[in-house]
C-alpha cells in the first residue's frame, strides 16, 4: 500500500495498534481540510503491529492528548519534506476535556459546560483523578 510522504505536517508513528481512530477523534482530524492518512496494523519491528497517522498540513497538536492515549508515540514534525523535529511524549501532569469523570456524585455530572479536568497522581500506574471530586478515572 502506497501513501505519499508528508511535505509539511506531522507523522505520528508507533501508535499502539487500534488506537489511531481515538486519536483521530480527539484531535479533531476529521475537521482538517488537508490530506490525512490513517494506517492501521502496519508492521513494526519494535511492537509487532502499530498504527500511523500522517497529516500533510499545519496543525497545532495537543501533546497532552497524545501523551495520555499512548506515551510511546513518536511525533515527527516535517517541514519542506525534511524531518525538522522528533518529539517523544510523556504522560501529561494534567488533562482538560480529554476524559470525562464517571462519578455520578461529581459536580461535572450536572453543571453545564465546565471542563472535565484531571491530574496525574500515579505515573507508574497511569492513575488520574478528577480535580473536582478526586474520583479515580478508569477506562
Amino acid at each position: 500500500m502506497n501513501i505519499d510522504g508528508v511535505h509539511t505536517g506531522v507523522v505520528l508513528d508507533h501508535i499502539q495498534a487500534g488506537k489511531s481512530m481515538r486519536i483521530y477523534e480527539l484531535l479533531g482530524l476529521g475537521k482538517l481540510k488537508c490530506c490525512v492518512a490513517i494506517i492501521q496494523n502496519a508492521d513494526s519491528e519494535k511492537y509487532g503491529k502499530k498504527d500511523i497517522i500522517k497529516v500533510d498540513g499545519d496543525i497545532d497538536l495537543d501533546f497532552d492528548i497524545l501523551g495520555y492515549i499512548d506515551s510511546n508515540i513518536t511525533v515527527n514534525i516535517v517541514r519542506e519534506g525534511k524531518l525538522e523535529k522528533k518529539v517523544h511524549l510523556d504522560l501529561p501532569e494534567s488533562l482538560s476535556n480529554v476524559i470525562k469523570c464517571k462519578n455520578p456524585r461529581c459536580i461535572t455530572s450536572i453543571e453545564q459546560e465546565i471542563p472535565h479536568k484531571f491530574k496525574l497522581v500515579n505515573k507508574e500506574k497511569k492513575v488520574y483523578r478528577c480535580i473536582y471530586c478526586d474520583a479515580e478515572f478508569t477506562e
Partner: peptide, 10 residues
C-alpha cells in the same frame, strides 16, 4: 453546601 462533589471548586 452542595450534594455534588467538587461543587465548591467550581
Amino acid at each position: 453546601r452542595h450534594p455534588k462533589e467538587g461543587a465548591p471548586v467550581i
